[in-house]
Design a protein around this nucleic acid. Structure first.
Lengths: 215, 215
DNA sequence: AATTATTATCTTGTATACAAGAATATTGAC
DNA sequence: GTCAATATTCTTGTATACAAGATAATAATT
């Protein structure tokens, strides 16, 4: 299925905004973007709309669209929401996950473990993502799964920073083991609670890190 | 703040799709819509994109956009997700809701009660919505609140049907009282559990109703 | 007659042209 | 010199024109 140009541009712009190439409040000039991507304004406008809808930019009528990098408060709110979504996925997964899914989850965690042993932070980052996605999938609720994926993707660049905290990776791994236990046991409440705090900690660590950078 | 034409059209189209004016799988013809709204294809295309992004339509490249009315399975999934979002809101609201918010919540519930006494189903429908929105607001997490509002809005037309079940309104009202109690007591777990089942029941009743209509 | 190949038509996607509101610059008054 | 009013320029929003892929229709071959 061929992507149309506008969608490619939307993806590129998302990446650029994610990577912090544009700072908060900056106006995304249609004409400049058009010349940059060597297209007309039409596909650019389509891409900009997508950014606005996904919350990464704000549109002020007759004035343009402006990138909206989330501030500390909004980030904490998003991590809180993520924690609750993951808890919900865990709750359902405990009751519904198939043996097959549990195997995939354990595999992902094994790859996490070997990444920690190799001290491969970016490998861990990647496999950790898969681990969580297996839980979303295990919830057996396509709508909830896609919502979780959406927010996970939105928080991607911020989770990355957070991994640098010393000792976080091994701690995270231990929590994964507990989560797997709870899911295998079919303990919905425990799985939900573990996942909630697992993600909440991420958010709090991130906050500490950001506060530290300001000093 | 003046809305641009494209946004007005997007809202109109949303309403039309909500009201079931278009059936599932129907193609939304750009030209027909353009002539219908007396505009060019440009604002129509913008509106269609919004529909696609909000999940109310599907876009197939070079083929067009097609309305996507959720089937029974997807609806149940959305109600399940709603239940979890509301539970999350309740959890936070129990800890964070202000006295002011609690008063607004009680007021909304009083208006629900008087609507029940008047046997005013559509009044109840409206005030019930406000009741839940006060809880979202009480969570004191703008991101979670907006996510909850988004899904609440998406489920609007389906909740409406569900109120016709005999005795549901008084039952719902009793549950509201319990929820208020839990929130006043600051009991996060109980508030979450009550809200979860309160909404889950809605989804199940809706399912039963739909199954009944098919016979 | 049925099936495939080719052509014609229709629809989406992109580029360009035009209209209208917003920002900026220039000019005039105090 | 500062402030205000007007004019100019710039940018977004909409309309139209064009390009290319998809569907439908017709013709040709077996």
């Amino acid at each position: 299925m061929e992507l149309k140009r506008a969608e490619q541009i939307a993806d590129s712009l998302e990446q650029l905004v994610f990577q912090g190439k544009y700072e908060d409040g900056q106006r995304l000039d249609e004409i400049k973007l058009a010349t940059h991507f060597s297209v007309s304004r039409t596909p650019i406008r389509e891409a900009l709309q997508r950014l606005v809808m996904s919350g990464m930019a704000e549109q002020i009528p007759r004035r343009g669209v402006f990138v909206r990098q989330p501030g500390p408060v909004e980030l904490l709110e998003m991590f809180e929401t993520m924690a609750e979504l993951e808890a919900a996925c865990g709750r359902f997964a405990a009751a519904r996950m198939t043996d097959d899914g549990l195997v995939r989850l354990a595999d992902a965690n094994d790859r996490c473990r070997s990444a920690v042993e190799r001290e491969d932070a970016s490998g861990y980052y990647l496999e950790n993502e898969t681990f969580h996605q297996e839980i979303y999938r295990g919830a057996t609720n396509a709508h909830l799964e896609s919502e979780a994926l959406r927010l996970q993707n939105r928080l991607k660049p911020y989770r990355r920073v957070q991994l640098r905290v010393r000792g976080r990776m091994t701690q995270s791994l231990a929590e994964h083991d507990e989560i797997i236990d709870a899911l295998k046991a079919g303990d919905a409440q425990r799985a939900a609670d573990l996942l909630r705090s697992h993600v909440t900690v991420q958010g709090e660590r991130f906050q500490q890190l950001m506060a530290g950078l300001k000093n």
